[in-house]
Design a protein around this nucleic acid. Structure first.
Lengths: 338, 338
DNA sequence: TTGTAGGCGTTATCAT
DNA sequence: ATGATAACGCCTACAA
C-alpha cells in the first residue's frame, strides 16, 4: 500500500490535470495561478492528503528551516527553560528544533555538530555556559565555517558567531552586595565547573565586590562542586560544613547547587536564613518550590533563548547585523532564603 | 566563499581522481574498494572536510534517521526526563530527535505532525498522557498512516501504533492502599485534566481500592486542577482547604500538583505529614528536593522513553512485532511526606 | 497563465 | 574494482 508520505507532486499534477510546475506554484506562489486552476489543485491536494517533501525542498532551496540546539542536558530546569523558549520562538518563525544532549562531553558535542551539519541545519545554537578550553572553542569555530552559530550564555568572537549573554558580573554584584548589606562578612562561594565561562566571571566579580567593601575573598570558603547540580551543591556544602568552615552565607553559582546546599544545611540542622543565608543564581522556577524559597539572581533564561533565535532571523534578513553581541541585565529576586 | 557544507561528492571525486560512485562507496561500502583507492578518497575527504548531505541521502534512501517527538512542554520535569531518555537512546541507534511543544494545544499538535511528516521523520513519539477526545486520536491515526507512531504513557489500538504505558491502576492501588494502612480514611484526590487517560485510570482505581476497604470515594474530596502543574495543585488544594473539607491525606495525580498542594498546606499552617499526608505520582527528581520530601509512585519515566525508542528499532527490524503494547510496573517510593 | 527541462547531492543498477 | 547514469521529489529559469 502506498503510504501518504509517498504521494508526490506528480500524483497531484496528474490528478489535477496540470503540470508539476503548476502544483509547485500552488504551494509557493498561489497568486501566479488562475483561481480556477488553484482551486482544482488545492482540491486534489486535500483529497489525497499531499504533503511536500521537505528533503527535496531543502535540497534545492539550500535551507531546511531547522535549527540545531546543543545543550548539556535537557533534564535540567535551566536548559529546559532555555530550550522551551528557543522552540517556541523558532516555531513562530517557521523553524523546527533538533536537539543534541552532550552531557558536557566534548566528543558527543563533536558528534552532534557533524550530525547537524550533515542534516543541513540553517544554524546552530550552543546553549548554556561552556568550558573555556581550546577543543570546545574549536568546535564552535568549525561549526561557524558552515552555518551561523549562536552562543546563549557564553561569548566568543568570530565572523559567523553571535553571542547573547547575561551580565553575570553585574548579577553577582547584586547578590553579593545584598548579602553584605545584610551584614554578612563571611560568604562561602560554591563554584560550578571552575573552568566554565560563567563560573570564572562570577568568581572575579565576587572578589571585586568584596574588595571594594574592604573584605578578602577567603579561599577556604571557596569550593568547586564536582558537578553543577543538586548533588554537587550538596556534597560541596557538606564538605564545607564538615571542615567547620565559618560562614554566615552561601552564594552558589547556580540554583541547583544552591538547593543542594540548602539540603546539606538542613541535614546538619542549620537554620535558613537565621543561621546561614543562601543565594542562588539563574532563578529557575524551582526557586519558588523549595523550602525555604530561594533568593536568586534572574538572568531571564527565556529571554536568552528568544534573543538567540532572533539573531538567526536577523542573520538571514541579510541586512548586515551591526552588533553580534547582546547583553541582558540581571535582577535580584529576594525570597525567603536570606 | 564556498562554505564547507557546500562541498559535495563531485568535489571529492575530482580531487581524488575517481568517480562519484567510488566516493559513495568509500562512505557506504568501504570494502568494495581497493585499499589504495579507499585511502586516497579518505585523504581528500579529510582534507576538504567533506560531509555527506543527509537531505540527498534521505531522498534516495527514504529514511532520515530522525524521530519526531511531540510533548506538551519540555519545561516540565516529567517531559524533560522522558525526552532525555528518548534522546539518549535514539542517539545510540543513530537517530536524531526533532522536538514539538504543544502546550496541550491540539492545533499546535496538528501543526507539528504536518511539519514532521513533511520533514520525513522515520517515526513519531507522542510523549505523555493525552486527552481522550476524538480530535486527539485523529491526529494519532493520521500520523500512523505515514509512519509508525509510538505512544508513551497512553495507549491506542491501530496498525502502525505502538503503546508503552505504566500500570497506573496498579500504581494508584499502591499509593492509596499505603494511605489506608496508615489509617487514613478521608483522602482528597487532586485530579489533573479530568479527561486525560492517566487521570481517568487513576480515579477509577482509587474508587475500586476504597470500595474494597469498605469506604466511599467522596465527591467533595475530589477536585480537578485547572492545570496539571504546581499552580494547579496549589489552587486546587487551597479551594479544598477554604471550603473546610475534612481530609487527612492528599493523593495527587502527579508530583507537580502534589508539590502545589504541599505549598498550600504549608501556607495554611497545616503540618505535613502530622496533620495531612501527601502522596504524588511519577516520582520526578523534584520529589527529593522539596520539603518535606515527597512520597510518590515511580513509573520509571526514563524506561517509558527507552521502550518507546525500542519499539521504533524493532519496527524497522522487519521481524513482525508480536505485541505492540508494553506495560511497565510501578513502585511506591516512600519519603517524608506521609 | 502554464509547461519543459535542468539541477540540487546522493545511492543504486547495470555495464565494463 | 570502478564508472556512467537513472532515479529520489522538488524549484525555477526559460519558453510558449
Amino acid at each position: 500500500m502506498k503510504l501518504e508520505k509517498d504521494i508526490n507532486i506528480y500524483d497531484v499534477a496528474r490528478l489535477a490535470g496540470v503540470s508539476i510546475t503548476t502544483v509547485s506554484r500552488a504551494i509557493n506562489r498561489p497568486n501566479m495561478l488562475k483561481p480556477d486552476t488553484l482551486e482544482k489543485v488545492y482540491e486534489v491536494m486535500k483529497e489525497i492528503n499531499y504533503t511536500p517533501n521537505a528533503l527535496a525542498q531543502g535540497l534545492v532551496l539550500k535551507s531546511t528551516k531547522t535549527i540545531g540546539v546543543i545543550i548539556a542536558n535537557i533534564n535540567n530546569p535551566f536548559y529546559g527553560e532555555m530550550v522551551k523558549a528557543i522552540e517556541v520562538t523558532a516555531s513562530k518563525e517557521g523553524y523546527t528544533i533538533i536537539l543534541g544532549n552532550t552531557d558536557n562531553d566534548i566528543s558527543k558535542e563533536e558528534k552532534y555538530i557533524n550530525m547537524f551539519l550533515k542534516k543541513q541545519v540553517d544554524a546552530i545554537i550552543f546553549a548554556g555556559g561552556r568550558r573555556i578550553d581550546e577543543k570546545s572553542n574549536d568546535n564552535i569555530f568549525r561549526a561557524s565555517r558552515s552555518v551561523p552559530v549562536i552562543l546563549a550564555n557564553h561569548k566568543l568572537d568570530g565572523d559567523n558567531i553571535y553571542s547573547v549573554i547575561a551580565d553575570e558580573e553585574e548579577g553577582t554584584k547584586l547578590a553579593v552586595s545584598y548579602l553584605l548589606e545584610r551584614g554578612h562578612k563571611r560568604i562561602a562561594y560554591i563554584n560550578g565547573y571552575k573552568d566554565s565561562y560563567p563560573s570564572i566571571v562570577k568568581r572575579e566579580s565576587m572578589i571585586s565586590v568584596l574588595d571594594k567593601a574592604g573584605l578578602n575573598f577567603s579561599e577556604e570558603l571557596e569550593i568547586s562542586a564536582e558537578s553543577d547540580d543538586v548533588k554537587g551543591g550538596f556534597d560541596a556544602c557538606m564538605e564545607l560544613l564538615e571542615k567547620k568552615a565559618a560562614f554566615t552565607a552561601v552564594f552558589a553559582a547556580n540554583d541547583l547547587m544552591a538547593i543542594g546546599a540548602i539540603k546539606a544545611l538542613q541535614k546538619k540542622g542549620v537554620r535558613i536564613p537565621e543561621d546561614v543565608a543562601v543565594v542562588g543564581y539563574d532563578n529557575i522556577y524551582l526557586c519558588s518550590y523549595v523550602t525555604p524559597e530561594l533568593t536568586s539572581v534572574t538572568q531571564n533564561i527565556s529571554e536568552l533563548g528568544i534573543q538567540a533565535v532572533n539573531f538567526i532571523i536577523k542573520h538571514f534578513d541579510k541586512k548586515p547585523v551591526k552588533n553580534r553581541l547582546k547583553c541582558l541585565k540581571p535582577k535580584l529576586v529576594v525570597r525567603k532564603s536570606c
